[in-house]
């Protein structure tokens, strides 16, 4: 088992509706995987099943050889190694940007305050927000909030970051700044799984694209192949629709 993340036959059902019907994929270290597909096909649920923010009904997940889904695993220890970036940021409302970023290192990893502060300042600088350390979330734009939340994830020095539609709640003119940060992370070798509708990002950054529909993976492959010659008619149709909607380069 060499892959950093292994997802095997994950199922999830909400009442009558089976949201995930057996999803399997692997992510190598340093790889960026982009998951695309129509809304309501279980993409976000899949991400949450990886760090068990949602408990999968069946199937297994491994991170770096450790079984995440094993009842013996301390899930908090695993989550500390998996960054999660939410669609609506979920920055801690009562804390400044700096405090948002250093809370995890201090309370979860037991890092000393001055060390955590230095780390948080570095991570904020990394996402271009060194000057916003003392701002509260309500004083930041959506794009800035999302960058702080990426810094918050980075400060935990994660093995992997999961992005759940990180730009879907943003005004169009703010999407670029967030994507830029993510592109930089991908280039620096961060392992990422990204659920997004930004086809431009998918095309230029993804090592592999996974197309999901109705709780299953329909097709997966490198962007060049998937975009130019999709094997499955559903993939082709989805790509045509989303290109109409968002424009060619997202």
């Amino acid at each position: 088992m060499n892959a950093l993340l292994v997802v095997e036959d994950v199922h999830k059902r909400y009442g009558k509706e089976e949201v995930l019907k057996g999803v399997s994929f692997q992510v190598e270290k340093g790889e960026t995987k982009v998951i695309i597909g129509p809304s309501g096909t279980g993409k976000s649920t899949l991400l949450r099943c990886i760090n068990r923010l949602t408990e999968p009904d069946r199937g297994r997940v491994w991170l770096d050889g450790v079984e995440v889904t094993s009842p013996k695993t301390n899930i908090n220890r695993i989550r500390a190694q998996i960054g999660f970036v939410f669609q609506d940021f979920n920055l801690f409302t009562h804390l400044t940007a700096l405090d948002n970023v250093r809370l995890g290192p201090m309370r979860v990893k037991g890092m000393k305050k001055d060390e955590a502060t230095r780390l948080a300042q570095e991570e904020l600088a990394r996402v271009g927000l060194a000057d916003k350390a003392d701002a509260y979330p309500a004083e930041l734009s959506g794009g800035q909030q999302q960058r702080v939340s990426i810094a918050r994830a980075l400060a935990m020095n994660p093995k992997l970051i999961l992005f759940d539609e990180p730009t879907s709640a943003l005004d169009p003119e703010l999407i670029g700044e967030v994507l830029q940060v993510m592109i930089k992370l991908a280039q620096e070798g961060m392992t990422m799984v990204v659920v997004t509708h930004e086809m431009g990002f998918a095309r230029s950054v993804a090592d592999e694209i996974i197309f999901m529909e109705k709780g299953v993976i329909v097709e997966q492959g490198p962007p060049a192949q998937l975009f130019s010659s999709p094997k499955h008619p559903r993939t082709a149709e989805f790509l045509r629709k989303i290109t109409e909607l968002y424009g060619g380069e997202g």
Partner: peptide
């Protein structure tokens, strides 16, 4: 959710 995702109990 955000707090739990960082590994907090």
């Amino acid at each position: 959710l955000a707090a739990r995702s960082l590994g907090m109990s």
